[in-house]
Design a protein around this nucleic acid. Structure first.
Lengths: 196, 196
DNA sequence: TTTCATACTGTAAATAATTATACTATAAAT
DNA sequence: ATTTATAGTATAATTATTTACAGTATGAAA
């Protein structure tokens, strides 16, 4: 995103804080009052600049019609997916984990509950929520979510000459060897855990 | 929170979805149009019911002045705290992790970066963000953040007869034994990790 | 030297949005 | 039997909020 001036930065911060505090963005007049401008036009020109530079979006003629382009990325928690159902629908939806956009970057994310301890040594425990990014290039050594034999599984991915190895981090489990193209749902890019 | 009727639930959901989509709550008229009411008073009575039951807050006379009482809990990421500074100020603030309130419950939370691998066997890795809850009762076996010897440390907590043991999960490290009252910052109740 | 972005003042008009008042009707609870 | 909560219609008044227009001034870039 383009550089913004100091004043624009301050106005952006004000909108952000106001939203965090109240749950909705400020009006033009509220911004005007906060910065002691004597005309709403002063605010409008700053908002136009911020919109032009990609920091906010504005709905014309709507009150408080300011959307911050930054802030949160909402990751839906799909929870457990029934075995045998290769499609991820937003039906088993359990809520959201939400992180600052600059935390994970742009992309399509969702979150799943991990079952079992086959990835324990990679720090992925039973009951953890893995954050999965779709449509990412998978490289050897990446942790992936794969649909195999009617179930979802989280494993290390290794592409060998004649097969693909889905390797658990836990040495007590065996690797899965696949010769056909496996159904990779996405790459594990994050983790969320609740600790009792 | 008190039970709400089906209609109230639907209106609450609409406000929630609208907010997720746009970044700001709907106006009374927008709700009215969506539900094909022919009077704003119909909406107002539902909003009054929702407010009375504790689901929303409303700022009178403000446009879009609806705040959802549910939804997100913003956990500030304090990142690294300089060693030797026992007070956690929101100055090293790096952003937010935000989760649904029903995920972690009520309380005061913040998030810190973990340094080192002394808790590796507990699934807490170098670079992880631990979510810390303040003012919780600490029991033996809990993972805590403690200020000791000018630094912050994440360890298992064990209160023995004459001393307190701060035990690492990694057997390569030694326990810290404290005889005076240690400065417990809070209990580790969650974890967030970015995986490259 | 002309253009462009920034950074405003000041006022009026237009429209968006909330509230207020006066009603009707139904089902559940005391 | 009466109160209370729910679930509405319909209209008008009021206030909140945005936009539009006409300006001024400054510094940087082409």
């Amino acid at each position: 995103m383009k550089n913004i001036t100091e004043k624009q930065q301050k106005i952006f911060e004000f909108i952000k804080d106001y939203g965090l505090r109240t749950g909705y963005p400020p009006t033009i007049k509220e911004i005007m009052d906060y910065f002691s401008f004597s005309s709403p036009t002063a605010v409008i020109s700053h908002l136009n600049a911020l919109e032009k530079k990609g920091y906010i979006k504005r709905e014309k003629k709507k009150s408080r019609g300011i959307t911050l382009n930054e802030v949160f990325l909402n990751i839906p928690i799909i929870g457990t997916i029934p075995a045998g159902v290769p499609k991820i629908e937003e039906e088993n939806f359990e809520g959201f984990i939400s992180v600052n956009k600059d935390f994970l970057g742009k992309g399509q994310f969702f979150s799943l509950t991990v079952k079992g301890d086959s990835m324990k040594q990679a720090g992925i425990f039973d009951g953890d929520y893995v954050i999965v990014e779709k449509n990412l290039e998978i490289k050897n050594g990446d942790i992936v979510v794969c649909f195999y034999d009617g179930e979802y599984t989280v494993k290390y991915f290794y592409k060998k000459k004649n097969f693909i190895e889905l390797k658990p981090a836990n040495p007590s489990y065996k690797s899965i060897i696949i010769k056909e193209n496996p159904l990779i749902i996405g790459k594990v890019v994050g983790l969320f855990r609740k600790i009792k």
